[in-house]
Simulated scan of single mutants.
Amino acid sequence: MKGFADNIEKLTEENNNFRQVLYTGQNIQLVLMALQPGEDIGEEVHEDRDQFFRFEQGTGEVRIDGVANQVSADDGVIVPAGALHNVVNTGSTPLRLYTIYGPPEHLDGTIHKSKADADASHEHFDGRTTE
């Protein structure tokens, strides 16, 4: 097994995809995201998985069960399983971040170039890992 080793800050800052799955393990998944100004992920609840967000560029807001948390570069946020949450880009430049799901949420290798692509897709983790 090779795992994943790379410069996550550089990869995040260079990412222009709304969502790009970089690595999927049995219990954890690494995903890059870029939200355009005014864009959000969309309110959601993951009943059975925790989620960590790390912000590299831009400004935004993470709402967790009705509480708004302002975020910018170098901030991290954990959303526990069962919490209603959303990430919103409140700035004038892309909000670039990576997120870690535990356990995985998306199909390994998923790339959604835009939020519209993501909204049109109904994929979910199927048990297949990167290696």
Rank of each mutant, 00 (worst) to 15 (best):
96 R>W: 11
39 E>K: 04
35 L>C: 08
84 L>A: 11
96 R>Q: 15
105 E>H: 03
78 I>F: 13
51 Q>S: 03
76 G>I: 08
70 Q>R: 05
42 G>C: 05
108 D>G: 03
11 L>K: 10
32 L>A: 01
35 L>Q: 06
24 T>N: 05
40 D>L: 02
10 K>I: 01
11 L>M: 12
110 T>Q: 07
76 G>N: 02
96 R>A: 14
17 N>P: 02
107 L>W: 12
23 Y>Q: 01
86 N>M: 05
48 D>R: 14
81 A>V: 08
101 Y>T: 00
75 D>V: 01
20 Q>C: 07
22 L>G: 01
53 F>D: 08
98 Y>C: 07
84 L>E: 11
49 R>C: 08
98 Y>K: 00
10 K>W: 04
86 N>D: 15
66 G>N: 06
82 G>N: 13
10 K>F: 10
38 G>R: 05
78 I>M: 14
26 Q>R: 12
108 D>H: 10
14 E>T: 12
29 Q>C: 06
28 I>S: 13
23 Y>A: 03
99 T>W: 01
86 N>Y: 05
110 T>R: 09
11 L>A: 12
22 L>D: 03
108 D>S: 13
60 G>H: 06
18 F>C: 08
12 T>I: 04
64 I>A: 07
91 G>Y: 13
21 V>Q: 07
68 A>R: 06
36 Q>D: 06
23 Y>S: 00
13 E>D: 00
104 P>N: 10
110 T>D: 05
77 V>K: 03
36 Q>P: 00
47 E>Y: 12
108 D>L: 02
28 I>Q: 07
109 G>F: 14
74 D>Y: 03
18 F>V: 03
